[in-house]
Design a protein around this nucleic acid. Structure first.
Length: 937
RNA sequence: AGUCAGUUAGCUUAGUGGUAGAGCGCCACGUUGACAUCGUGGAGGUCGGCGGUUCAAAUCCGCCACUGACUACCA
């Protein structure tokens, strides 16, 4: 078989995805087991305006790894894909498009605008979903959803109407975060504070009526004084006690406003007197309501001043108005001073413009009942269980505890239009359709509310609307089968916007938890340690990484950094995993080059398999997958070989690698169950590279490449192929393309290796049974014995390197050890000689070597290499002294511990014994090293 | 301002009470029929500082310093 010398990721990525999709491997229906447990995940729907960024790549990798493993384990697995309509982002795209044509939305009208939006969505809205195919995401495309699909839209209207009819949704005039650029309200969560150092605090003097007194107020937004309707002071502030109840002559206007007292005012701050602008500041609004103050709106929706600001200011932009107010106060001699002041300005997360608090009419949703439901679920059942729990659970509950009503209306056209109609008198009729509204109103003369709902309103229903719930239909097979979903994987930034709302609305409308677990990933930061962003130009494009390093390398790298903490992007690390992919490729290539007469066969990995009869009765899990009745399969198991393969015929290396394989499988599963992706990756990396490649392949190389055709050679070949086959399955959730590419090349693979739930499916590693690991196959003794061999070889290599022995020079290795250890070394003589590049191995109770020998000690043996003419005595002395020093330092510390009565009394007995054993071990080594040093002097 | 997180080898980082790990980089040697996207060996850490708890602290507690995130406020 000809196999390329290096792994070409592009080639492997080209065909497999299509094959999987064509074979319907992603849909849960491929599972033939009617009893199978379900496993489901809904994707956090990416915006239709978006394109794949590293955060998606990270989250998709984790979801895919989870889903692929569960699928391989025989779960009826669904990962549901979809996209979000992203009101404001799409709106902006269309506005730009119109602007390029010299038009405005108002000119073309709502209908044309929406037509363009849908066209845009059809054309560009699948960018991310297409990119997900490149990622290898095993989502069920037959269940692709969009938040504005007909059924999902109906669910939105239904939920709105039900909440309205129970009084949870209401209209109200409130201060909201107004974006003057996008001309819509935005939620608190979409407002980002931006610190500005060059802010100014302006001190304005307000004359008191019928008095020479003036009151000084400080403000960062002087233009809002045009909308002031009071000045407030703290009731206990002695400075202003006399002024409470008096009247201010508000400069630049002809208005007279009262001086009121309110606890809200902090006497320590500024002048202790505060100008109150109820229509343009949330706190002032609250205060205004308490004191029954007039709410004077002085700005238009584009943040220019309106008529109420006065003729001098009308039409001016807010910043121009600010300058002008300051100028006028100066002219009037009422400008006391201007101080530099660091302010943090609320800005629109999306367009970065400074938002303006504005009094306006909006729709709101009361959250108290749903909030309590969510808090109860957390308190009583601990759902959702956050990973990592700290600090996410607290962030979630604290936010819920302080939750305010949700402003759900947006002044946009693209989205779910609010199902409310007004008659000529402005009376509102909320209904599921125009017809319903007309019937209730008794008139055709109705106008639907212009606004649409916050995009997060529809995403809040995602965990059940995607399964077909739309109010009209409330019980569907999918809802029954896949809800609640098992886990949500998402970023920290949307715990408030999405996670919490999904929990609340799912509980309220289908009386279920939305998901049991919630994995919150860290943020992938740029190389500079800052979040990736276009403006910083520190972004890393996943697609470029796919091209450069391969999808699999990128995926396993992302999984390896998924610790829950924010992590910096690191090119050299992803290179490490590209190299890892190549290592897997070449290890498999080597085995395939020596695979004649061999094939993948489970029995080679079970030392208990002594006869065909035994195969039938043991390892139920193993055989179950293949079908016990399958005579053909049993015929394939060559009886002669099996008889040749009892436990005593397995080498230490074989028992060791089987033990390591099973231990790795057990630990990988354990880690993934806890969403510890990085641990799973690290286990797989070290098993494959260190244990399998560096040691096992080297140890059995001669057996496998032997020119002698015999059953022993074929057994060794089959065994190593089977180990690779198991490793490929274990790696598949992280590296789907590479593992499929290689797995298909292995002799002996077929859909008989599939999990029992996929017997009839076309053969693919993605349906192979995921190894769970068998703890009965963990062989502590083999691991300890192998450790002794590895240590011996390493010590010899160490001597060779430090003494600079040429690779062509082959010394004799003398080893002194007890009988048991000698036996182990004898059994591995050939491998030791090969890997240590030695001539011969001389075993004995005691060393008998010339003075010109280099020496070393291991836990169980003394080693000497006679190096007549090659040894540098000074170097050897230094080397031994170095070793001796290290051991003595440790010994001193441990002895100190043992001489501490408190330690011996209070520490667990086994710990004390452990240290005693270690001290004894060191003592032997120290004695040996000292003798060796003496001999050299 | 409050809350929380982080501070470990030159760099990026694992490690929630019992001898400090990894990858890259560095130094030396190497092409022994999978792999130079490789192999072998080596150097390099008082685990931010100071106290405390404990037989035992990178790990638990307190204080401090620095970094970051979030929440609130910012007249």
């Amino acid at each position: 078989m000809e196999i390329a010398k290096a792994y070409n990721s592009q080639e492997a990525e080209e065909s497999h995805y299509q094959k999987w999709e064509a074979a319907n491997c992603f849909a849960p229906e491929i599972n033939e087991n009617p009893e199978a447990e379900k496993y489901s995940i809904v994707i956090p729907p990416p915006n239709v305006t978006g394109s794949l960024h590293m955060g998606h790549a990270l989250q998709h990798t984790l979801m895919d790894a989870l889903v692929r493993r569960k699928r391989m384990q025989g779960y009826k697995t669904l990962w549901l894909p979809g996209t979000d309509h992203a009101s404001i982002s799409v709106q902006r795209k269309i506005v730009e498009q119109l602007r390029d044509e010299g038009k405005t939305p108002q000119e073309v009208g709502r209908e044309e605008f929406l037509r363009r939006a849908w066209d845009w969505k059809e054309l560009y809205g699948n960018t991310i979903t297409e990119q997900m195919k490149r990622e290898g995401a095993s989502v069920d495309w037959s269940r692709l959803r969009f938040t504005m699909d007909e059924s999902l839209s109906r669910a939105v209207i239904e939920v709105f109407c039900r909440l309205y009819s129970e009084g949870s949704i209401y209209r109200g005039r409130r201060i909201v975060n107004w974006c003057p650029h996008d001309k819509t309200v935005i939620s608190d969560a979409e407002v980002k504070d931006e610190k500005k150092k060059d802010g100014k605090l302006v001190y304005l003097q307000y004359p008191v009526k019928d008095s020479k007194q003036k009151v000084t107020v400080a403000t960062t937004r002087p233009e809002t004084m045009l909308g002031d309707t009071a000045v407030a002071v703290n009731p206990s502030d002695e400075r202003y006690k006399d002024l409470i109840g008096k009247t201010i002559l508000l400069p630049l206007t002809n208005r007279e406003i009262p001086i009121v007292a309110d606890e809200y005012v902090d006497a320590e701050f500024g002048t202790g007197a505060v100008k109150i602008t109820p229509a343009h500041d949330p706190n002032d609004y609250e205060l205004g309501v308490r004191h029954n103050l007039e709410q004077l709106v002085i700005m238009n929706d584009d943040a220019t001043m309106n008529a109420a600001a006065g003729a001098d200011f009308e039409g001016l932009d807010r910043y121009k108005a600010r300058e002008k107010v300051i100028e006028r106060f100066e002219e009037l001699g009422l400008l006391e001073k201007i101080e530099d002041y660091e302010v943090s300005l609320p800005t629109c997360e999306r367009c970065k413009n400074v938002i303006e608090p504005l009094l306006s009419e909006q729709w709101f949703c009361r959250m108290d009942e749903m909030r309590d439901m969510a808090l109860d679920m957390m308190r009583e059942r601990g759902v959702p269980h956050f990973y990592p729990q700290v600090p996410n659970e607290k962030v979630y509950t604290t936010w819920l505890e302080n939750l305010k009503d949700w402003t759900i209306s947006r002044q946009l056209w693209w989205g779910h239009q609010i199902p409310a109609w007004y008659d000529a008198d402005g009376k509102v009729f909320v209904a599921r359709s125009f017809e319903d509204a007309r019937n209730t109103a008794g008139t055709d003369n109705l106008r639907q509310d212009d606004d649409v709902l916050d995009t997060w309103f529809s995403s809040a229903l995602w965990a059940f609307s995607t399964f077909g719930w739309n109010g009209e239909v409330t019980e569907t097979e999918d809802l029954e089968a896949y809800s609640p979903t098992d886990v949500l994987v998402t970023g920290r930034d949307i715990i408030f916007l999405w996670v919490s709302r999904m929990m609340m609305l799912t509980k309220k409308f289908v009386d279920k938890v939305a998901f049991d677990d919630c994995v919150i990933t860290g943020t992938v930061l740029g190389k500079d340690g800052k979040p990736m962003s276009k403006s910083r130009k520190n972004g890393v494009d996943p697609l470029e990484m796919f091209d450069k390093f391969g999808v699999d390398a990128t995926r396993i790298y992302l999984a390896s950094i998924a610790t829950g903490a924010d992590i910096r992007w690191n090119d050299t690390l992803i290179e490490t995993y590209r190299n890892f992919a190549n290592k897997i490729w070449n290890a498999t290539r080597f085995c395939l080059m020596n695979s004649e007469g061999a094939e993948v066969n489970y029995t080679y990995l079970d030392p208990r398999a002594e006869t065909v009869e035994i195969i039938q009765t043991i390892g139920d899990e193993l055989i179950d997958d293949i079908d016990e009745e399958d005579e053909e399969f049993l015929d394939k198991v060559e009886p002669e070989f099996v008889k040749d393969n009892p436990k005593e015929n397995l080498s230490i290396a074989d028992r060791w690698i089987i033990s390591r394989l099973n231990r790795t499988a057990l630990d990988v599963n354990k880690s993934l169950d806890k969403y510890e992706f990085h641990t799973a990756v690290s286990l797989l990396y070290h098993f494959f590279w260190d244990d399998f490649c560096d040691w096992y392949i080297e140890l059995v190389k001669d057996d496998i490449t032997s020119e002698n055709v015999n059953t022993a050679r074929d057994a060794a070949r089959s065994r190593i192929l089977t180990i690779i086959e198991q490793a490929l399955r274990l790696l598949h959730p992280f590296m789907p393309y590479l593992t499929e590419e290689l797995w298909q090349k292995l002799p002996g693979v077929s859909n008989e290796l599939h999990n029992a739930a996929y017997k009839n499916a076309a053969q693919t590693v993605m349906l192979a049974d995921y190894p769970l690991g068998d703890k009965n196959l963990i062989d502590e003794r083999a691991e300890a014995e192998m450790q002794a061999v590895i240590e011996l070889i390493s010590k010899v290599r160490n001597i060779r390197a430090e003494m600079q022995i040429k690779p062509s020079d082959k010394p004799v290795i003398h080893v002194a050890a007890n009988a048991e250890s000698q036996q182990i070394f004898a059994a591995n003589e050939a491998q030791i000689l090969k890997l240590a590049r030695a001539e011969a191995l001389v075993l004995g109770e005691k060393l008998d070597v010339p003075r010109a020998s280099a020496k070393a000690v291991t836990a169980v043996a003394e080693i000497a290499l006679p190096l007549e003419g090659l040894i540098d005595f000074e170097k050897e002395v230094a080397r031994l002294e170095n070793q001796l020093n290290k051991l003595e330092t440790e010994q001193t510390r441990l002895k100190g511990q043992l001489s501490n009565a408190n330690f011996v009394d209070r520490a667990p007995a086994e710990k004390v014994q452990e240290i005693r054993d270690r001290v004894a071990e060191i003592e032997t080594q120290v004695v040996a090293l000292r003798q060796n040093l003496e001999a050299l002097k």
